[in-house]
């Protein structure tokens, strides 16, 4: 049964329909967990003894940073599948994830610097994690730029898949070298923003927010995939029929 499911998912029309049905579920799940996470994060979780209330930015910054890494890996895996098995739908997934991933990376950077200002006194600190996140943003922008530069969308998708694979191989190397580089110039005054050992009341909202961002990603990537499919299959019959129905 599973094989049949994946086999059917290969056809754009079937994928379009299934995605259409799944999006509302993802969206509802996202909204519920988001409200829950924000409620716990802002109201219930106690203030941090050292950072006071400013640590609450963590509830956006950390899940966004996790998502930026998670989405890049998902993109690389779907890139690999689309290169090896030439499945059109995974190609669509690669480019649909790129913009969401880039926005999460940007969000992680922005909230990181907003959090850094009260903590370290400046908007930008060449901290190892923030620098690695900045490079990850450039990788995402490279992927988006390459995809928009190539006219033929099939060629573009496969070129972008290769770039995502090359990128994912380089991410650990970049992280390791940035860590090495950072420990060399570690200014003594920077309080190492290590993973604070948090008790449950602080950790729970973080996990809820992480789950809610994942559901959000599920919804948005499927929405972008549907838009991409309609764009790609604009000449096929089923799109014409669908457009006529929708036009009525």
């Amino acid at each position: 049964m599973i094989v049949r499911f994946f086999h059917q998912m290969g056809s754009p029309r079937y994928f379009y329909g299934v995605a259409g049905k799944m999006i509302p579920w993802f969206m509802v799940g996202f909204l519920v967990t988001l409200l829950l996470g924000i409620y716990y994060g802002l109201f219930v979780a106690p203030a941090d003894y050292q950072q006071g209330e400013s640590y609450r930015i963590m509830y956006i910054h950390v899940p966004a940073a996790w998502m930026s890494m998670f989405i890049y890996v998902v993109m690389a895996v779907s890139g690999l599948i689309s290169l090896v098995w030439r499945i059109k739908m995974t190609e669509v997934m690669v480019i649909s994830s790129a913009t969401v991933g880039a926005s999460f990376t940007f969000l992680a950077l922005a909230t990181g610097s907003l959090w850094g200002k009260p903590m370290w006194g400046t908007w930008w600190v060449w901290d190892a994690r923030l620098t690695a996140e900045l490079l990850l943003l450039f990788l995402y922008l490279g992927i988006i730029a390459l995809h928009s530069a190539i006219e033929d969308k099939r060629v573009a998708a496969r070129a972008v898949s290769i770039l995502a694979l090359v990128g994912v191989v380089n991410i650990p190397i970049i992280h390791y070298s940035v860590e090495w580089w950072n420990t060399l110039h570690q200014p003594a005054s920077v309080t190492k923003l290590g993973k604070p050992s948090m008790d449950m009341s602080m950790l729970a909202p973080l996990l809820i927010m992480a789950i809610s961002f994942k559901l959000y990603y599920g919804a948005v990537v499927l929405m972008r995939a549907r838009a991409e499919i309609v764009e790609r299959e604009r000449n096929s019959r089923w799109v014409m029929e669908m457009v006529e129905q929708e036009a009525k």
Binding site: E53, S54, S103, T111, R224
Partner: peptide
């Protein structure tokens, strides 16, 4: 706790980015 000028903009920015990524597709 005096950090309003940092906490609220980051939540607001998050909201803007999340909504933008839903509206765009």
């Amino acid at each position: 706790g005096g950090y309003a000028v940092y906490v609220w903009p980051s939540f607001l920015l998050a909201l803007i980015i999340l909504v933008a990524n839903i509206v765009a597709p």
